[in-house]
Design a protein around this nucleic acid. Sequence first.
DNA 1: CCCCAGTCCTGCGGGC
DNA 2: TGCCCGCAGGACTGGG
Length: 280
Amino acid sequence: MPELPEVETMRRAMAEAEGLQFANVKSLRCRLKPILIQPPVSTFRRRAKGRLVRSVDRAGKRVVFRLEGGYHIVVEPRMTGLLLVADPPNKEHLRLQLDFGRDNGLSAWYWDRRGLGSVRLLNTDEYQAQLGPHRLGPDALKLTREQMRERLHKSRREIKTALLDQRAIAGIGNLYASEILHLARVHPRARCDRVSGIQWKRIHRSTIEVLETAIEYEGSTLADGTYRNALNSPGQYQNRHRVYDRAGRPCPSCNSGRIRRVVQAQRSTFYCSSCQKKAS
DNA sequence: CCCCAGTCCTGCGGGC
DNA sequence: TGCCCGCAGGACTGGG
């Protein structure tokens, strides 16, 4: 499930397109229900063709190709989407081909098993409306400790649920929220308005630490094997998971507590009840 | 403001 | 062995 580290890994592979012209988009339709492509491929191609790729950025959990003329190609992988430059895990879930430049250019494929993701071409206004600051908060790797506290500390929500709110902070998903709170030794059910200053400091530091390390390891590939980097190789951060999907096993920090699984906002949360506290 | 359940979609694995 | 059902959780929506 691509979160910030996985999407950042995709972005780095796609950065090869910087300085090239967008050349073509092709639909590789499989028999499955098609993903959302907006506008339809022929219009997409006509509007984007020949435009220079000024930069390849990340907006939370989306890869954004910024084209000249104010256009943006926004790739949103959601649960099972991948951007590849090599052979895909299989052919039947290939959805789209994106070509940049000429002979020595870049061809990228969008692959998506469940098909919940999307690829969209947005103009400036559409981009602002759909991914502007009122829809997407500051990036989890860029905001300061004080910004993080300021954006969350008045809320009565539980901290784990609040970390998933992309309007508050962009990029953290279900897996890394558990990992961050375990490293920070903060209970996932702690109410934001009862989290102490020292705990905010630890949450902020842990956010940077977990996400940066996960990027170094090129993200997490879980047991279902879905996530791959652009060369179709698995990530390695799953080998460093502290709590995620490890219910019943001993806590890697205190070694005495067992990792528990609970459900918050219809999602699994993993934590250690002996080292993660609601207040301090 | 916030919470919850439902929606999209496919493949896997548990249970019988 | 085979089939069905529930679950995985990204983002979003509508109702309370």
